[in-house]
């Protein structure tokens, strides 16, 4: 079961991945955007780290929903750009989806991510194939729920979700952008990866901590 402490581990891992890949994300955005996606996400996730508090802090008495809501508010107020409202709205919906629960099971996690996707799609009005983070996110969500439905364990299902997200991100490369700044480039957006699709890959990669993986390296 996944409790608030485990959700915090996920967010710490996500902040770490964003920090490590900050320049890569910004470089992708320089090619078809305005060179700030890594900077924006890193600013936001560093601020999230700040509210997570000490790792040893036994004070984990807030509910998952409260934590997710706080994360949403931090992202909305710190990230800016397109990704701030998009990830912010996703986390707000995740908070709503987990409701009053203290502990989340595998299905709850799948529903949490699915609710996040709906929020992101409503806010940005993008769909699969528009060359945005939705291309990675939507594929990850379907892989996660179908893999769980087929009876695979969480760890295996998360691995499926991660490779689906990666595949979704790869598939943005040949597309012409229809949403976001890259859409102004028209035909010239073809041949380049969408930066937001990659930050979404890391969101799912970090989620491996739900299955007790990858929660290492805190300097």
């Amino acid at each position: 079961m996944i409790d608030t402490a485990r959700l915090k581990a996920w967010l710490r891992r996500y902040a770490e991945l964003i920090h490590v890949h900050k320049d890569e994300l910004t470089a992708l955005d320089a090619t078809i955007g305005d060179a700030d996606h890594g900077t924006n996400m890193d600013r936001g996730m560093q601020a999230v780290l700040h509210i997570l508090g000490d790792e040893e802090d036994a004070n984990e008495n807030i509910r998952p929903a409260e934590l997710l809501k706080q994360v949403a508010m931090v992202l909305i107020s710190k990230v800016g750009g397109a990704s701030g409202p998009l990830y912010g709205t996703a986390f707000l919906r995740m908070a709503q989806a987990v409701g009053e629960k203290e502990q989340l099971n595998e299905e709850d996690i799948a529903q949490m991510f699915a609710a996040g996707l709906n929020g992101m799609k409503e806010r940005g009005k993008a769909d699969l194939g528009d060359k945005t983070m939705v291309d990675a996110y939507a594929r990850a969500v379907s892989a996660l729920s179908s893999s769980l439905a087929e009876g695979f364990p969480l760890k295996e299902s998360l691995a499926q979700a991660i490779s689906a997200a990666k595949e979704g991100s790869d598939q943005t490369i040949p597309l012409i952008a229809r949403k976001g700044r890259a859409s102004y480039l028209g035909e010239r957006s073809r041949g380049h990866r969408d930066p937001g699709s990659l930050s979404t890959v890391y969101l799912f990669e970090a989620a491996l901590v739900f299955a007790g993986e990858g929660e290492i390296n805190h300097a």
Partner: peptide, 11 residues
């Protein structure tokens, strides 16, 4: 004013 080339936030 937002960050450079980044929109301001709702707050």
């Amino acid at each position: 004013p937002g960050e450079i080339f980044t929109s301001p936030v709702p707050d």
